[in-house]
Design a protein around this nucleic acid. Structure first.
Length: 418
RNA sequence: GGAGGGUUGGCAGAGUGGUAAUGCAGCGGCUUGCUAAGCCGUGACGUUGAAUAGACGUCCACAGGUUCAAAUCCUGUACCCUCCGCCA
């Protein structure tokens, strides 16, 4: 959410940003609605002023008569104000955030810039298997029964697969906790305002599961509950930045991706994630620095796991509405012969905090909206695709990265005899 | 699921129809020779201002209603607490 003042003062910038993000906005309608809003506020304030003066005077029939008139007039104006405010709020809530100057302008994913690669794409001296085949022969994945029980894109993690999944999540949660992040188990059932507040709504409604209850949804990421954790609060400047590492199940309808990645663990309705969320000061220099810290954390995790990856700087056309700057990390997945997205690291500026009303009090006593950032630390089971496929051996077994050994209790997974 | 109580600034807490006490914390300032202490100022949001000056308006969980006038009376909703029932 941008402020109306910012929109009025930076009209061209806002129009250009929307264009670069492939969004349509009607700035003139916004300004017209705001003009009317201001007119109404002025008229209403004047009447209230008169009413306040009256109520300090000796009470007479004359005052009562005028009081009734004021009441009628106020009611009419206040109703129109409520209507126009709602209209304005809706219009502004669709205005996307303005990208940082570093962000390349581009239509779609083809405009993204590869900033670096780490590790070598895994080379095999045998015909490598996909994680689907490995999962079957190792007896650690069961898609058939997953679909039977859960439906399309359903899966079971089984045997070492189940242990590996939990070990990965715990390993990462522990690592971030040691770095000073507050560990959280976050709720996945959330109220609508959290989804609007983080900017999933109004754009991504078709992506989110709605429960039968009036105001209950399944969050697609812990970013939603954790960013909203301090909603409606005023924090102290000296407690910022607040850093969280949250583990939660994540639910996605994948409504727009029928026919895409229909096999395996890549695109599923239900997965688990450790998400990093930071609330910081309203300061872009600090945000850039924190963004790099989040990036480093995620890269460290992949380096420890020994998975080859690359870092992308996302262009305007491939960014979400709330984002100011975004990196994706993609991990090498041999069966795809491509890198596949595993992490997404964003600066949101005050776009989310304005909607969620999260502020902090500065040294001079003034309040200001926080900046929010978030980045995937690890999403499983998607990461298991990369582990299985990159660590497979000629004999059909799969090695487990050393960092996980203390948690898994096994160092490799071997094919099960039928 | 049932019964009762509650929700007032960062926190605590007064306020039963006519401008929202007070204390603590935080922040700013002043004072004092020393680990302290004291004094003054300081809620949020909005409108109008060049203004972080002043003026005005709004805000007592949220949304309605009654009234010339609502934190206060009425209705609904959310959340919290206590007890009963059920339950991993």
């Amino acid at each position: 959410m941008l402020s109306i003042d910012f929109i009025r003062q930076n009209k061209d910038k806002v129009i250009e940003a929307a264009k670069n993000k492939n969004r349509e906005i009607d700035i003139e309608a916004i300004i017209a609605a705001d003009d009317r809003r201001l007119e109404l506020i002025h008229a209403i304030q004047k009447l209230r002023e008169e009413r306040n003066i009256q109520s300090k005077q000796t009470f007479t029939d004359e005052i009562k008569k005028r009081g009734k008139e004021i009441k009628e007039e106020l009611k009419r104006l206040e109703e129109e104000l409520t209507t126009i405010e709602q209209k304005l709020y809706t219009l502004i809530s669709y205005v996307p955030n303005v990208p940082h100057a570093d962000v390349p302008i581009g239509k779609d994913s083809s405009g993204n810039v590869e900033l670096k690669t780490w590790g070598k794409k895994t080379a095999f001296d045998f015909e490598p298997k996909s994680h689907l085949d490995l999962g079957l022969s190792l007896d650690i994945l069961d898609f058939e029964r997953g679909a039977k029980v859960s439906g399309f894109r359903g899966y079971f993690l089984k045997n070492e697969g189940a242990i590996l999944h939990v070990a990965l999540l715990f390993h990462v949660l522990k690592k971030l906790t040691q770095k000073g992040y507050t560990p959280l188990i976050a709720p996945s059932i959330v109220k609508g305002f959290t989804l609007f507040g983080t900017g999933q709504f109004p754009w991504g409604e078709q992506e989110v599961y709605k429960l039968n209850d009036d105001d209950a949804y399944l969050a697609g990421t812990a970013e939603v509950p954790v960013t909203a954790y301090h909603s409606g609060e005023i924090l102290n400047e000296n407690e910022l930045p607040k850093k969280f590492a949250a583990i939660s199940p994540c639910f996605r309808k994948e409504a727009g991706s029928y026919g895409k990645d229909t096999k395996g663990l890549y695109r599923v309705h239900e997965f688990w994630k450790v998400e990093q969320v930071i609330l910081g000061k309203n300061n872009m220099d600090e945000a850039i620095q924190l963004h790099e810290e989040l990036q480093k954390n995620s890269e460290e995790i992949l380096q420890e796991l020994g998975l080859p990856y690359r870092q992308l700087l996302m262009c305007t056309g491939d960014m979400g509405e709330p984002q100011v700057k975004k990196y994706d990390v993609e991990v090498w997945m041999p069966s795809r012969s491509a890198y596949g997205e595993t992490m997404s690291n964003s600066i949101m500026g005050d776009f989310q905090t304005r909607r969620l009303n999260i502020k902090y009090r500065k040294k001079d006593g003034k309040t200001e909206y926080c900046f929010s950032l978030n980045n995937t630390a690890l999403a499983s089971p998607r990461i298991i695709i990369a582990l299985l496929e990159n660590y497979q051996q000629k004999d059909g077994s799969v090695m487990i990265p050393k960092a996980l050994h203390p948690l898994t209790g096994f160092t490799q997974i071997s094919p099960k005899k039928k």
